[in-house]
């Protein structure tokens, strides 16, 4: 689906990561030095931030939302929508968004639920929250929060360890407001392919399985073609785009994707070297990592694209006020939700 919102503005973006860093070179003794160095060279992922044992997706999500609300001076009762996008909810029932609603002291008038999306969650989530805000009062406010944890792994199987060495923990929140004076439309192109639902897969109690070749082919073909089509549908050229922020899958994939859809590499921002593949939050993590550069101008035309599990892929193009992009910060808090009655 291609579309545009003319009455929504992105007011802020906040990212938190746990402070603990793991260096991928430290896994050389488990997967072999040759393979380890090759993996780091091709994926570009040198370090990742990992959660403390017991730290959850909701801890990162709460920190990202509360910091963003504080920065924007948003009172809890002014928030009309909270959508939590994660592949790692705290519970099966209910949506973890209700737990976040409680912790953030949001009002009962707020619409809250989880969305089960992976690496397309930042962009598909912006579309979801923008859609929900269409029914809100003028000035209606929505929060999208995207978060997945990653832990230090004791895994010894080299193939599974190689997959785990890609991922880093992060939580990012986006504040959206319904406004008549939006500085820019938000264009979106959101697509899904259920025929490939097994490309990235985990059954209940089962292991995470990823068809690396299939996902790579998907990214450099389907995603690349749609990014090029998306620019055409909006009526912009690549000259109009100040920055691209893509899902931080891995470096070889991103470079091939850039080539395939005419993206100048100097405009394509990355965060994977130090933060890894941060799942759904990664295009937002990247913006926060580069906030100093982005703030050289008051606004930036940004094309974001998330793609992955589903398969799902969604691009967003809009002009962002760079003052709303906050620097990345740390979160090591653990909320003892199991102890609550």
């Amino acid at each position: 689906m291609f579309g545009v919102f003319n009455n929504i503005s992105i007011e802020g973006i906040q990212t938190v990561v746990p402070s603990r860093i793991v260096n991928n070179l430290d896994f050389a003794d488990r997967i072999g030095e040759r393979r380890c160095k090759k993996q780091i060279r091709l994926t570009g992922i040198k370090e990742r931030h990992v959660c403390a044992p017991g730290q959850t997706s909701a801890d990162l999500a709460y920190a990202a939302c509360s910091k963003l609300m504080k920065n924007l001076r948003w009172e809890p009762d002014s928030v009309d929508v909270l959508v939590f996008a994660t592949q790692n909810p705290l519970f099966i029932i209910p949506s973890t968004a209700f737990f976040l609603q409680k912790r953030l002291h949001l009002s009962q008038d707020c619409v809250v639920f989880d969305v089960n999306l992976g690496c397309s969650a930042a962009t598909a989530g912006i579309q979801t929250v923008s859609s929900l805000l269409q029914g809100a009062r003028p000035g209606g406010r929505g929060l999208l929060v995207v978060s997945d944890p990653t832990y230090y792994t004791e895994e010894t199987n080299p193939d599974e360890l190689a997959d785990q060495m890609l991922f880093g923990a992060a939580g990012s929140a986006v504040a959206l407001e319904k406004t008549e004076a939006s500085i820019s439309p938000i264009y979106f192109k959101n697509k899904s392919d259920g025929n490939r639902y097994r490309a990235i897969f985990r059954a209940p109690g089962g292991k995470f399985i990823m068809d690396g070749e299939g996902v790579f082919q998907f990214a450099i073909n389907d995603v690349a073609n749609d990014i090029a089509d998306f620019r055409g549908e909006i009526g912009i050229s690549t000259d109009d785009v100040d920055y691209y922020s893509f899902h931080q899958a891995q470096a070889l994939l991103l470079s091939t994707l850039d080539d395939a859809c005419g993206v100048e590499s100097e405009k394509e921002l990355r965060s994977l070297e130090k933060y890894g593949n941060t799942n759904g939050s990664s295009p937002l993590v990247t913006l926060c990592v580069h906030e100093q550069e982005l703030k050289k101008n008051e606004t930036a035309n940004i094309l974001m694209c998330g793609f992955g599990v589903g398969l799902s892929w969604c691009s967003i193009y809009t002009t962002i006020k760079t003052s709303g992009i906050y620097p990345l910060s740390y979160c090591d808090d653990i909320y003892p939700w199991r102890e609550e009655n």
Partner: peptide, 11 residues
């Protein structure tokens, strides 16, 4: 001739 080499060949 591992999974990373195969991805590089695809690229």
């Amino acid at each position: 001739w591992d999974s990373l080499s195969k991805l590089s060949l695809i690229a």
